[in-house]
Computed example of a mutant assay.
Amino acid sequence: MSEFRKVTEETSHYRHLEKMSVTDVLQNMNKEDKTVPDAVAEAIPQIEKLVSAFADKMLAGGRMFYIGAGTSGRLGIVDASECPPSFGVPYGLVIGLIAGGEKAITQAVEFAEDSTENGWADLQKHFINDKDVVLGLAASGTTPYVIAALKECRKRGILTGSLCCNPNSPVSREADYPIEVVVGPEFVTGSTRMKSGTAQKLVLNMISTSIMIQLGRVEDNKMVNMQLSNVKLVDRGVKMVMEKLALTDYEKAKDLLLKHGSVKKAVQAMNGSL
C-alpha cells in the first residue's frame, strides 16, 4: 500500500480567515463544499462493492452497525436512527455506535476515541455475530476505537467496511470494503466536521438508501414502508395510496392507510380484494 498521507490535517488553502468579510468567508466555504460531490463520485466503485456485499448479508438476516467517534460517530447515529421511520425497518436493524456512549452524541468525551478496547466491547453489547456487517467511520482514518473494533471483527469472520477521508489510511487496512473520499484540506485547518463530515453524510445516505432499496423497502420512488409517525407522513402516505389505487376520495384512502399501517400493506390489501 502507498504511503499514508493525512490530508485532513493539512493547512487550509485560505489564510487569515479572521480578516475576511462575512461574505468572503461564506463564499469561500461554499467554493470548498462544491468539491465534495466530485470526491464522492470518484469513490462510487468502492461504495458499490460495499453496498452489494452488505446487502447480501442483510438479506440473509444480518444487521448493519456503524461505529465511529466524534462527528463521524454522530453522523452514523443520525443515519441509523432515520432508517426505521423512513423505511419501516425495525429498530435494531441498523445500529449506530459512538466512542464515549450516548453522552458523546451531544458532548465531547475526552480521549474516548483513543480506546483500543471499547469499540469491540460496544459491539459485543449487541451480541454481534458473523451474520452482521460493520462499517467503521473515521474521517482521519486513524481512530483507535474504530480500527481496533474492525480488527476484532475480522478475526471473527464479521464482514467489515470503512469510510474515511485520507488515502491509504490505517482504517482501510482493517476493512474488507474500504471507502476513501479524499476531499482535501478543510477550510478551517483540521476541522473535519466540514468537508469531511459532508462527504461522510453523503456516502451514508447512499449506503443506507441503496441497501434499503435492495431490501425491498422502496417501490418506484416511494417510501412505501415508512412509519406513520406524524401528520406530514400520514398525508404523504394518503397521497401515495390515492395514486397507487387511483382513488379520488382522500378520507377513504386515509382510512385504508391507518387501518393497514403502511402504504404497501394498504395497497396489497385492496389489490387482494379485487
Results as ranks from 00 to 15, higher is better:
172 S>D: 01
175 A>Q: 14
161 G>F: 00
168 N>P: 10
154 R>K: 15
179 I>G: 03
158 I>M: 07
176 D>S: 02
178 P>S: 13
172 S>H: 01
184 G>Y: 04
188 V>I: 15
172 S>Y: 12
152 E>P: 07
182 V>G: 04
163 L>K: 10
160 T>A: 03
160 T>G: 00
185 P>H: 08
189 T>G: 10
174 E>N: 10
148 A>W: 09
170 P>W: 03
169 S>T: 12
182 V>P: 07
176 D>P: 07
183 V>G: 02
174 E>V: 04
178 P>D: 04
190 G>K: 05
176 D>Q: 05
176 D>C: 02
173 R>L: 15
183 V>I: 08
153 C>S: 14
191 S>Q: 04
190 G>V: 09
189 T>K: 14
166 N>T: 03
187 F>L: 15
147 I>T: 07
167 P>C: 09
157 G>E: 02
150 L>E: 06
155 K>Q: 15
183 V>A: 05
186 E>R: 06
151 K>I: 09
156 R>N: 14
182 V>A: 08
179 I>C: 02
181 V>H: 13
152 E>W: 08
172 S>C: 13
171 V>D: 00
172 S>V: 10
160 T>Y: 01
149 A>E: 06
164 C>S: 15
174 E>Y: 10
163 L>A: 10
190 G>W: 11
185 P>T: 11
183 V>H: 04
163 L>W: 06
154 R>V: 01
182 V>D: 06
177 Y>E: 00
160 T>V: 05
182 V>N: 10
152 E>Y: 12
162 S>N: 10
169 S>P: 00
177 Y>Q: 05
167 P>A: 14
179 I>M: 08
152 E>D: 13
179 I>W: 01
180 E>C: 14
167 P>N: 08
177 Y>F: 14
191 S>P: 15
170 P>F: 13
171 V>Y: 00
158 I>S: 03
153 C>N: 13
157 G>I: 11
185 P>A: 12
186 E>P: 06
154 R>W: 10
173 R>I: 05
169 S>Y: 00
170 P>A: 08
158 I>P: 01
188 V>N: 11
181 V>T: 01
157 G>K: 02
146 V>A: 07
157 G>C: 11
191 S>K: 14
188 V>L: 15
178 P>K: 04
178 P>Y: 11
155 K>W: 12
175 A>F: 08
157 G>Y: 08
150 L>S: 10
189 T>Q: 06
178 P>Q: 03
153 C>E: 09
154 R>P: 01
179 I>Y: 10
168 N>G: 12
182 V>Y: 11
168 N>L: 01
170 P>G: 06
165 C>G: 05
179 I>K: 03
178 P>R: 02
148 A>P: 11
185 P>S: 15
190 G>T: 05
180 E>R: 10
155 K>E: 14
147 I>R: 09
179 I>V: 15
152 E>H: 13
154 R>D: 01
168 N>E: 12
177 Y>I: 02
165 C>M: 09
171 V>F: 00
170 P>N: 02
164 C>V: 08
188 V>W: 07
157 G>V: 05
176 D>H: 13
162 S>M: 11
161 G>S: 12
151 K>M: 12
